[in-house]
Design a protein around this nucleic acid. Sequence first.
DNA 1: AGATGTGAAGCGGTTCACAGCT
DNA 2: AGCTGTGAACCGCTTCACATCT
Lengths: 220, 220
Amino acid sequence: MARLPVYLRALTTLSETGTTVCSSEDLAAAAGVNSAKLRKDLSYLGSYGTRGVGYDVEYLRYQIAREMGATRDWPVVIVGIGKMGATRDWPVVIVGIGNLGHALANYSGFRSRGFRVVALLDADGQRHGEVVAGVVVRPFSDLGAIVREHGVAIGVIATPAASAQDVADQMVEAGISSILNFAPTVLNVGDDIAVSKVDLSKELQVLAYHEQRKATQETA
Amino acid sequence: MARLPVYLRALTTLSETGTTVCSSEDLAAAAGVNSAKLRKDLSYLGSYGTRGVGYDVEYLRYQIAREMGATRDWPVVIVGIGKMGATRDWPVVIVGIGNLGHALANYSGFRSRGFRVVALLDADGQRHGEVVAGVVVRPFSDLGAIVREHGVAIGVIATPAASAQDVADQMVEAGISSILNFAPTVLNVGDDIAVSKVDLSKELQVLAYHEQRKATQETA
DNA sequence: AGATGTGAAGCGGTTCACAGCT
DNA sequence: AGCTGTGAACCGCTTCACATCT
């Protein structure tokens, strides 16, 4: 279930504030859902609560983490260190500016949750050899070797939309079976491949849409 | 509707490849949904298709763009539409210039869709004066003044979880009514405030979860 | 013929409400 | 008494299927 990570984080927060036991009500509030939904979700994992009392924070946290596979360490490959967000490939414009792949490589939230960036790849030869977050940027063609070497199962695509499908195909070819896609494109992959999509500007556009609605309603 | 940005982008892609007319089937494939859903969605905007033929790409694109944020600034609408589908200009503030805030400030996908980053704010005095993506980093306390000056309606939170609620409160106080939250926390705000949440490591964790499932199923 | 637009059926997730346990 | 675990009602979105129009 897609809410497990949220519950896990909420439990961690509770744990840090010294809470040892919590009701479904408490945890639901911390996770931003309602208590019935939380209880139903947890019931799919098993009966880890105590009636009349609540859930033991550490115990439940362990159970969710186990269910999620967070007890092991997942090697990750990030492709596309430059040019993120350009609809087409404009190397001249983008070179020398920070970017999403760069940020992802540095993003401490990944490391702290058990994800280890084992390689940074880019098609742009200019960036090869550059060291980002302690990892050397290598050619995209090294993908297969790296996947084999580290047993990589998860790939992150932070390239322009135009290259995303090609990158995805080669990831699958190399043996990667889960893809996190930041490019604003629908990826065509077999349904044995899990794909998560994050579209940053889409989120902003949705907000702009709400703003627009508010503005037109006020004048009505 | 949250899918409008996706349709808009799909239409832009089709337009760039020289397509002038498309069926609901075509557009649905490009947007990654099925045709019935697409037609139902579009029917809420009006009857912009032609039976037996399909949708005129440019015309539909204009209609969706208008729906998404452009009843003001008529002249701008027409000019802007030909290029990107952004029909007006949304000033945006980004708070928190860590790795992620840095990347967002540089993200070209925002600019190209009509969002203009008017200010970068950070609580860390070390960073004040630093120039990122052509914008100077300023103290968080400048928020109110900047919102008034530029008429900012949209704020982006790229701070650690611990500060996010406080930042959100002050954004609302300053008059911002739409928030894009990258911090892994549930924000408590009035329901007249629109909040979108993006949790990068959550997405990875969901993928790891799928990997875990696959692994355990194979051994079963 | 061929594709849109749309009532109606279907479905999955959410919420209710309470039985059952501590 | 209090809180979990869960069948059952509910609700909104999705999908079907077809009337309708060009």
